[in-house]
Amino acid sequence: MEHLLKVNNVEKIYGKGANRFQALKNISFTIDHGEFVGVMGPSGAGKSTLLNVLATIDTPTKGDIYVEEDNIAKMKEDKLADFRRDHLGFIFQDYNLLDSLTVRENILLPLAIAKQPAKEIEEKVNTISRSFGIEDLLDKYPYQISGGQKQRTASCRALVSNPKLIFADEPTGALDSKSATDLLESLSGLNKEHETTIMMVTHDAYAASFCRRILFIKDGGLSQELIRGTCTRKEFFQMILDELAEVGGDGNDLV
């Protein structure tokens, strides 16, 4: 089967001359349909840069990124917008919800943009909000709900249009452990049941342990790969901790 995402020798360089800084060095990997991939690494290793480049938020200096047949590294502005609309979903650490819209309206925004019929929208919003357990909050405004609920709203928005690929940038970063666990269980459930493909950047080993596979990044390049295989989540968590200790990442990033 063809890969969903194929990254080929991607480099990202910021600045010029003396200020030149290579954030990504020659990165290549693939993600298949239905995978739940985590990206880990110490602060400043290039995790977020990698995610931004893959998510078309930023452009790579060199290299190709294929989503199925489309090379998004070479795509034009307008086509990229369409591509984001049709195939990508985003979850951020700071939610990025519009305060002036209700939870329901925030969730249906991508569908409205894709000009789907109202009846279908209604149905999809109800389904997705049920799977994240926020169906009672649909008519509330973002400032009336908690951080965990906000993040679940943002996740609903990312998933409602049924995109090929979800990008999550430290989605649990601002959540307490209960909310984080709830969110991660929901994501992991969707991944298992609907084969939604998720790529999540995190520095938290606990969050990473929900993934099926972990890519480690160090100094802008890929350093290691861990595959969960048939291990339980707890065993995988231990593996990640061991790996982190071995890589010797920044002590602060271990927890």
């Binding site: 307008d78 917008a81 990025n96 943009i113």
Partner: peptide, 15 residues
């Protein structure tokens, strides 16, 4: 700006 950025991120064309 935030609103505009979000629209753009969700795939609304700049035009």
């Amino acid at each position: 700006k935030k609103e505009v950025a979000l629209y753009s991120l969700l795939g609304v064309r700049k035009r």
